[in-house]
Write a protein that binds this DNA or RNA. Sequence first.
DNA 1: GTATATTCCTATTAAAACGATAGGAATACC
DNA 2: GGTATTCCTATCGTTTTAATAGGAATATAC
Lengths: 140, 140
Amino acid sequence: MFSVPTKTQYGIRALVHLARIDAASPGAPSESEASAGIAKAEGIPSRYLEGILAQLKAAGLVLSERGKHGGYRLAKPASEMRMIEIVEALEGEVKPVGCLDDSGVCAQGDCCLPRIFWVGLKEAIDGYLGSRTLRDVIEG
Amino acid sequence: MFSVPTKTQYGIRALVHLARIDAASPGAPSESEASAGIAKAEGIPSRYLEGILAQLKAAGLVLSERGKHGGYRLAKPASEMRMIEIVEALEGEVKPVGCLDDSGVCAQGDCCLPRIFWVGLKEAIDGYLGSRTLRDVIEG
DNA sequence: GTATATTCCTATTAAAACGATAGGAATACC
DNA sequence: GGTATTCCTATCGTTTTAATAGGAATATAC
Ligand code: FES
Ligand code: FES
């Protein structure tokens, strides 16, 4: 239950990889690493990771440079990148049930008890994801 | 992200339905309701719900009686039925990633930072689901 | 200015999970 | 015996997931 798609797992592994590069030389301007290099180091299918990084770039979480010596790097410090941003960039908002925002979808009418329960679950998940940054993750 | 399969949504709606019947006449021995009746009241495909209730019965959460006037009822008071039991009965343990228990699956070796993050997510979800009972849900 | 390494864009495919349906056997009540 | 129910097993269509493929655009190196 609640298994996380590989896309998100790979995306987070890639960002952790980039964050660790930055952490290795503090203060220095962050260095780009090519998609293929990350893929090899992390054991992720290379062409697949390209698409994932493109999505992270579209969300403003990484920056990219094309051409030789191009690659990706974090768009901001790991300490300012919340895990929920990453998850939402790759898979959209946490939404246990489709009727989260609607009211009166099911038989219970406008005050649906199960829906309140699912809203609580969303808050629990969002609370965890929102309380952790990429930096917290690379520090264990 | 983290959308809950209809099987689980339906299962919880059905149990909420049964719990509300019990709550309507406190003290009285709980009365069976037929699968088809629950399905109609809750707008759930009837034959599909049969399978779901069978699964809940196998997990010991509901009791069934066959034949005319048969049906389903809760196997124990709603206040003693934790939501995590229900979720696990229908979809198995909360397991964000396959490597939760294994060690050293990915490139990081025995101490994988992303894995620690996912373990934390599991604990957040389990914490929520384990802290609520069916009774909490029907009381809003 | 040509070769090379990279991101970028779009399409396709294979496999798995999901959601539901179907037929009919077993059982219990009346 | 007739009827209402649970129970068992199989099947099916759709959607999602995970990955692959081809090649265009772009920047550097020499
Ligand atoms: S409105 Fe979604 S379960 Fe009731
Ligand atoms: S062991 Fe699962 S991500 Fe590292």
